[in-house]
Structures are given as C-alpha cells and as structure tokens.
Design a binder for these strands. Sequence first.
DNA 1: TAAATGACTTAGG
DNA 2: CCCTAAGCCATTT
Length: 115
Amino acid sequence: MPSSPTPFRERVYAVVRSIPRGRVLSYGDVAALVGSPRAARGVGAALNRLEPEHDVPWWRVVNRDGRLTIPPHHGLRALQRTLLEREGVAFDRGGGVILERFAWDGPESDLRDTP
DNA sequence: TAAATGACTTAGG
DNA sequence: CCCTAAGCCATTT
C-alpha cells in the first residue's frame, strides 16, 4: 500500500525536533524547511496545537526578529524565555533572542566541518 | 464547502 | 522602538 503523505503538522514537528539545544529558528525558517515558505502562520498553528504528550522543543521557535510572539495570556510566553535561557540563549534589551549568536543555520550546517 | 482563527511576515508611518 | 494594515496559510467550526 502507498504510504500516505506526511501531514504538514508532522513535518513541522520533525523539523523542530531537529533544532539543536541552545539554538533557535524562526517560524518562517521552519515553514521553508518543510517546503511551504509562506506557511509561517501554519507553523505557529501546529505548535499551538501540540498534544499534552510530545517531544517537540517548541520553545526553540521564535519570530523573525528573535522576539517571542506567544500571547502573554497563555502563560507559556514566560516559560519559553525561561527554557531558552536555561539552554544558554541570551536576550537583548528589547526582549528578543540575539539571532546573530543563536540562530540555527539549518540541518545542512551540522554535516559541514568549518576549516 | 464557506467562514473564522491565529505562537507569522512584510511594508509603512 | 512601537503601531497599523494587508497578505498568507494550515487548521478548526
């Protein structure tokens, strides 16, 4: 039997799971990596609907400016910053991640040896 | 099947 | 740096 195509949501989870500890990716970056460069909002929707039991490091996904865009009333916004700082990710004065230091280059950068 | 929703992004002011 | 308006898209009603 032919294998059913992997749902968008599952592909998002797979990519997010691949983000190294102490690194971040933007919603748009994840969207591009799953093959839908314009589906940044879809990525947010997928992470927002994570089930209670999961192994997806959702806190490693921030917006394009490194800022946290989870609505404050969720309570998860503060948690995200805490989890990131625990991994060594530093924030600037504006409350955003310092992308110049913690943005992940992508899956392909891992295999490459820097001379 | 259509309308509404939101953890986005871009362009302007 | 903060705010608004419009465009985009997967998911939910």
